[in-house]
């Protein structure tokens, strides 16, 4: 590129009167205000969206997995578990909705970790910005990924003949719950991302958390078919709570206590893991 002459650059620098604001003329704030925290998180979300646009391969998991898993699980297990694929759909679609959201969460943690190793995070740490913004921003931008995953899973289900009893509002409410639980549970993986040594470690540990959570739940098989000691875990598994709530909303169009418990469960996860994640992030160098 044609470089500017040094003289030209210097002249321009000198033209601008207050390139520097002296310390004595500054109003220093001891901590960021809630409004600043919000706008900074939004700016970090904007950055995450730009990066998504530049690396569309980030979307492979949330685009392919809904088709692949829905079809695979329905045709393989449908007959054995529910007698027919058609009867299995109300169970498996809701299960896979939550499972894909969880997988997408794990990717959120892995990408956050990868991102944090970059030089630009040193600058974020040196700026007077809210410590939670670099986490909240990209995590919230990832809501887009959960939304895509949930929508595509539902579409696959409809194509295969899933006719939810909750009709439009039930399905819409279930969809919102899935996306919200994705955002909440991603705080677990964000925390992992801040404590693990590498992105690979987040991936490895994430798998070990994700598989028991999804398979030791009511996602794919009726809980009654499991041994008693396992049922105990399955019933307190937050993933089961969310799946039951999504089933109530989508299949029955009913706003039950299950839904309340699912939302409470998600909030508990945020309350525990968000402060942990923000704290270990701000300690990291």
């Amino acid at each position: 590129m044609p470089e500017k002459s040094i003289a030209a650059i210097r002249k321009e620098v000198l033209l601008v009167s207050n390139l520097i604001i002296p310390a004595s003329e500054r109003q220093l704030r001891a901590r960021p205000t809630p409004k600043e925290t919000f706008t900074e998180s939004a700016a970090m979300g904007w950055r995450a969206l730009i990066k998504m646009r530049r690396n569309p391969e980030q979307f492979f998991d949330v685009i392919i997995q809904p088709f692949l898993f829905t079809a695979m699980f329905a045709y393989i297990f449908g007959g054995a578990i529910s007698g027919s694929v058609q009867d299995y759909l109300p169970i498996v679609i809701t299960g896979i909705l939550v499972q894909t959201a969880l997988t997408a969460c794990m990717a959120t943690g892995v990408q956050l970790r990868e991102d944090m190793d970059k030089g630009v995070f040193n600058r974020f740490r040196s700026l007077p910005m809210a410590r939670m913004a670099p986490l909240v921003g990209p995590m919230t931008a990832d809501v887009l990924r959960y939304a895509i995953a949930a929508t595509l899973t539902l579409l696959t289900g409809f194509l295969m003949g899933y006719r939810p009893g909750g009709w439009f509002w039930g399905v819409a409410a279930g969809w919102v719950l899935v996306v919200f639980s994705g955002w909440s549970l991603s705080w677990i993986f964000a925390w992992l991302g801040t404590v693990a040594r590498s992105a690979q470690a987040v991936q490895g540990i994430g798998m070990m958390i994700m598989f028991p959570l999804t398979f030791l739940s009511n996602a794919f098989v009726p809980v009654e078919s499991m041994p008693g000691w396992l049922q105990w875990f399955v019933n307190i598994n937050p993933v089961s709570l969310v799946i039951s709530a999504v089933r109530d909303l989508m299949n029955d169009g009913a706003f039950t206590m299950q839904v309340v418990w699912a939302v409470v469960g998600c909030i508990v996860v945020i309350v525990i893991f968000a402060p942990l994640a923000v704290r270990s992030y701000s300690r990291k160098v």
């Binding site: 730009i50 030089g119 630009v120 600058r123 040196s126 700026l127």
Partner: peptide
Amino acid sequence: KNPHMIRQLVGVTGQYASVDENM
């Protein structure tokens, strides 16, 4: 004691360019 205030007073240019590669 006041890291947030310090960050308002100091501009840091690191040894390795701390800007975003993908932007």
